[in-house]
Amino acid sequence: MSSEVQNLFETYARLLDADRLEDWLDLFVDGCHYEILSRENVAQNLPLSLMLCDSKDMLVDRVMSLREANIYNIHVDCHILSFLHVEEIEGVIKAGCNYAVFQSNQEGESRLFSVGRYQAEIIRQHGVLRFKKMRIVVDTGAVLTLLATPL
């Protein structure tokens, strides 16, 4: 199972890096929850997030807004994932790993954009693993420039 979970995370990162956001949405179940929180708030037990989608529809809207409405720095992302940890409790898979996202502009200048941890709940649906919940705790709480593309 661990390699199946690893495959899911890698697909997640690969689709984001390839800007295939619509395909990336397919990795989430309908009643999903997607949230990006800063470590600063988590440490103080404060609930505010940087991005919060408490339904699949909200996540779809985010992607649609990025495509149709929002203006942001032109960039590509490169995810590096590490230290996958997986446990299964009563049919729900809890998995986490560290991530680093490097962001590069059109001129090939790269910067470390964000580091932190994925904390996911994963379920099996129609035979394949899908994210039920993705909670991302970012150490890089001071967002560089802006945060458009999901982490």
Binding site: S38, E40, N41, L46, L48, T145
Partner: peptide
């Protein structure tokens, strides 16, 4: 009641 903080570094 404070709900939390957000930070943004702009160049």
């Amino acid at each position: 009641a404070v709900l939390g903080y957000q930070r943004q570094r702009i160049f």
